[in-house]
């Protein structure tokens, strides 16, 4: 199952994802700034932030346990693995069979649990508040995400992301109405899981509304940098999962180096559009109260389940 060319490709893709993830985050921020009539900090700003944070001296609370300082590394490791598994450029990744979509959701859950635990570690009021809300969002988003992915899995008869992409991208063009429902549900989950408006606001430290930011308040310097970087990779991975499921055309089949430039071009284009779309959503919508989030996410869940049922109905 594993050969050396494949492994090389695997490593190249992992590094590519990790390296380009901050760019996507910067692009989204820049688009949002333009949409809001601001000039914006430029798309490279996340790199500057990361570099600055890595240079700083880390400050740790006196009572922080080993779990607290090891969490950023674990979370970064999880996201790195996720970025290596999702077919971003090509479908023939040797590590891809290591995790199917269910394991991928499990991987995100693992990262979430560690961040939440770390938030509770110092014992501050905000940490607990953030962890509680994060787990609230998490337990609602996770089933919705799984149902969305199951719809795609039922269509292609596999939970293997590469197989799903191959069967959706390279077979004859069939319109699956169930996928439309799944796409809307996936978008809602993406917003919630990546701490975006309307569920959370990545740009604020307003104590009554923040979720993700409340959890990582106590982190500084390299720890914060790793968490921020991991968040960027997470957003990137979610977007590429969405692209792989709903607009997979253009991805290289197998580990074919020749098809890579085209795949890269297609990916860049799709991500640029998706990032701009995300900025647009964040600009035109307002943040919900925390207790509206369950309604938002249960809508996503119901849409995903509906999509799955429609798949069975249409098939008959």
């Amino acid at each position: 199952m594993i050969d050396s060319a494949g492994i090389a490709f695997q490593i190249v893709q992992s590094i590519f994802v990790a390296a380009s993830a901050p760019l996507l985050a910067g692009w989204v921020n820049q688009c949002r700034a333009w949409l809001q009539n601001r000039s914006g900090p430029g798309v490279l700003q996340p790199y500057h932030v990361l570099r600055r944070l890595f240079h700083k001296e880390a400050v740790l609370a006196e009572n922080a346990s080993p779990l607290f300082w090891s969490t950023p590394y674990i979370v970064f490791g999880c996201m790195w693995l996720a970025g290596g598994i999702v077919p971003v450029l090509a479908t023939d990744l040797p590590f891809a069979p290591a995790a199917d979509i269910i394991a991928l959701v499990g991987l995100f859950a693992l990262a979430r649990v560690f961040v939440s635990l770390a938030a509770l570690d110092i014992g501050t009021a905000f940490g607990g508040l953030g962890a509680r809300r994060e787990m609230l969002v998490g337990f609602l988003a996770e089933p919705a995400m799984l149902m969305t992915l199951f719809t795609a899995a039922f269509i292609s008869g596999s939970t293997q992301l590469t197989t799903i992409v191959e069967s959706l991208a390279h077979r004859e063009f069939v319109i699956h109405p169930s996928l439309a429902f799944a796409a809307v549900a996936f978008l809602m989950v993406l917003l919630a899981e990546n701490a975006r408006i309307p569920v959370d606001n990545p740009a604020t430290h307003l104590e009554l509304t923040m979720i993700h930011e409340a959890m990582i308040l106590e982190y500084s310097a390299r720890h914060l940098a790793l968490i921020e970087w991991a968040s960027a990779i997470k957003l990137y991975t979610y977007m590429t999962i969405g692209i792989a499921l709903f607009v997979p055309w253009g991805i290289a089949q197998g580990s074919d180096w020749g098809a890579l430039p085209l795949a890269l071009l297609a990916l860049t284009g799709k991500l640029a559009v998706a990032g701009a779309g995300l900025a647009l959503i964040e600009t035109v919508s307002a943040k919900f109260r925390v207790f509206r989030a369950p309604e938002f996410l249960s809508t996503a869940f119901l849409l995903a389940v509906l999509g799955m049922l429609i798949h069975f109905l249409v098939r008959q």
């Binding site: 400050v59 740790l60 609370a61 009572n63 014992g123 009021a125 940490g127 509680r132």
Partner: peptide, 22 residues
């Protein structure tokens, strides 16, 4: 790998007791 230990930040709130935790 420089590291410094200090009091928790907690958004700058000065008063923090164990009872404020969840």
């Amino acid at each position: 790998g420089r590291l410094r230990r200090s009091a928790p930040w907690d958004c700058g709130f000065p008063e923090q007791s164990a009872r404020m935790q969840d």
